[in-house]
Amino acid sequence: MPKLLTASATETQSPLCQFTQPTQNESEGQQVPVAELKARCDRYYHYLAALQPPQENTMLRAANFTVASILEMLQESPQSNFIRVYYGIKENGEHELFMAPITADGTPDTSEEAVYADDCCACPPMSNCSNDEFLSTL
């Protein structure tokens, strides 16, 4: 069974990210059935399908990032302890995700040296993720 790293549920832990003290953001590995992760994706799909007009073929359900782009982003921002994923819409109307390194004050690194990572392809179109069991419809 896969392991999911998730925020620890300790009473002393704040529900907010601790940007200045990243070691306070404890994670614990929990065994997670693949079916539970798929159920998360299914709930989002059903939510999008229920919108009027339905959005299941318009809104992003997943995105792909190259390992090389993530590694470059991390190497160029070694002082960042977080990565934030942003959802946006390009001028041509395409939905897209991108990642940014986050500084100790909880804001994106906007220095001249900062590197962000765009997704390389998204789902939909489902042909980009045709074999993904998390995204298969019921």
Rank of each mutant, 00 (worst) to 15 (best):
A7F: 04
L48F: 05
R40H: 07
T20K: 13
F19Q: 04
V34K: 08
T10S: 13
Y44R: 14
R40P: 00
T6V: 14
A9Y: 04
A7H: 07
L16V: 12
S14T: 12
Q31M: 02
Y44L: 12
L51D: 05
A35I: 04
Y44M: 09
Y47R: 13
P15A: 11
S27Y: 06
E36W: 01
P54E: 08
R40K: 14
L48D: 02
V32Q: 01
L51P: 03
V32G: 00
K38I: 13
Q18R: 12
S27P: 00
E36C: 03
V32W: 00
A9V: 00
S27C: 14
L5G: 12
C41V: 09
C17G: 11
Q30S: 07
P33S: 09
A9C: 06
P33E: 10
A7R: 10
T20W: 01
T6R: 09
S8E: 01
P22A: 05
P54T: 07
P15T: 09
Q18S: 15
V34C: 04
A50V: 03
S14K: 09
V34H: 07
L16N: 13
P54F: 05
Q30K: 10
P54R: 14
Y44Q: 13
H46S: 15
P22W: 00
E28N: 13
H46C: 09
T23E: 10
S8R: 05
G29S: 09
A49P: 02
Q21Y: 12
L16R: 12
S14R: 11
T10G: 07
L51F: 01
L48K: 06
V34Y: 03
A49G: 03
P33A: 14
D42A: 15
E11F: 04
L5M: 12
A35T: 08
Q21I: 09
Q52S: 15
K38M: 06
P53V: 10
V34G: 14
C41F: 07
L16G: 15
A35E: 07
L37W: 00
T6M: 10
K38R: 15
T6Q: 08
S14H: 03
Q52F: 04
Q24T: 06
A9K: 08
L16S: 13
Q13V: 07
C17D: 09
R40A: 15
E36G: 02
E11K: 15
T10I: 02
Q52P: 13
R43S: 11
A7W: 00
L4N: 01
A39K: 12
Q24H: 03
A50G: 15
T6E: 02
D42G: 13
Y47M: 14
Q30N: 06
P33L: 11
T6A: 09
A50W: 00
P33F: 06
P22Q: 03
P22L: 05
Y45N: 11
K38T: 14
C17E: 09
E11C: 11
N25G: 08
T10F: 07
N25Y: 00
C41D: 08
E26K: 15
T20M: 09
D42L: 15
C17W: 06
Q24G: 14
Q31E: 12
G29N: 05
P15S: 12
L37V: 14
P22V: 06
